[in-house]
Design a protein around this nucleic acid. Structure first.
Lengths: 155, 155
DNA sequence: TGACAATTACAGCCTAGGCAAGTATATTGA
DNA sequence: TCAATATACTTGCCTAGGCTGTAATTGTCA
């Protein structure tokens, strides 16, 4: 199949690359804002990046180590150590050295974390739904499919 | 129109938000790698962020000030000052105070910048085309349209 | 005209991720 | 057994963007 863009007409700031960046940054900004202004969550001062980690933890059925989390969301290991520090100091999760392998840090949500997560998820869902206003279900599925195909092409 | 995601089924890590983040970061990483390994550009050590600025400058028909560039690509003004520092020290662009309004810094590509840009554009286009491998023209236009609609919903 | 507001770029501080080196623990193989 | 290697996390350093304050310049309006 032929290339999508060619040298004569390719406008870096009109194409898929530019749009992806813009949409992604607007989406994160909107999520940060929504988490910051939600009455139930404001006191926790959760950033979008922190939500991602909490969500990965809450929705994973298997036990999670720090490195599991890194792999799951493509995050740097050093950054993850500090991310866990921040979330631990907020009381949303806790570390435990795993007894059978004391190298690994087992991470789990606290009661507070379990209590706050559903609200975070609701807020995040609201933001995404707002960005998809006017989309039919079929269009949303197609968009997901396009993005998945791009991801496969990346490898 | 009904919401796309609902609370019972919404999986933050499967939906549009997650995919957007992944595709965007893979795309930037691929662009950084392509710019780094291109024989004609390797010596300039251009990052993807730097390419964006050079492209905004090269493809704009009007005169560009630092703040024009910031608005055009949604970039922080302080960060832009330092970005221009870096690109200026690489010899790709130069600053000039505009005589009729000495507050504004007029930025333009040098001869070196004009010479290097077509190659950068070619490399960037190749990366995007690779990510869109297997897409028909109609599918690519539809993807652009979906992303544009999300951007409009953001406002 | 002259005080005040607005705009533009810049500099300092803060946060946060990427990378590399370091430490503790576990595994492997001679 | 125990030295070498591998793994998991941590720490330090670097880079880079966001935010805030500042200085210079220009615009506004009484």
């Amino acid at each position: 199949m032929a290339d999508i863009y060619d040298i004569d007409t390719y406008q870096p700031r009109k194409g898929v690359g530019y749009l992806l960046n813009r949409v992604r940054s607007e989406l994160l900004a909107a999520l940060d804002e929504a988490l910051r202004s939600d009455p139930e969550l404001a006191s926790l001062e959760i950033s979008s990046a922190q939500f991602i980690v909490v969500a990965a933890l809450a929705l994973s059925d298997t036990a999670n180590s720090s490195s599991d989390l890194c792999k799951g969301i493509s995050y740097d290991a050093g950054a993850m150590t500090r991310m866990i520090d921040r979330l631990e100091s907020k009381g949303l999760l806790r570390r435990n050295r795993r007894p059978d392998d004391r190298r690994v840090v087992y991470v789990e949500l606290t009661e507070e974390g379990h209590r706050a997560f559903p609200r975070m998820r609701l807020v995040a869902m609201g933001v995404v739904n707002r960005f998809l206003r006017g989309f039919s279900q079929a269009e949303a599925r197609q968009l997901e499919s396009y993005l998945s195909r791009m991801l496969e092409n990346a490898a």
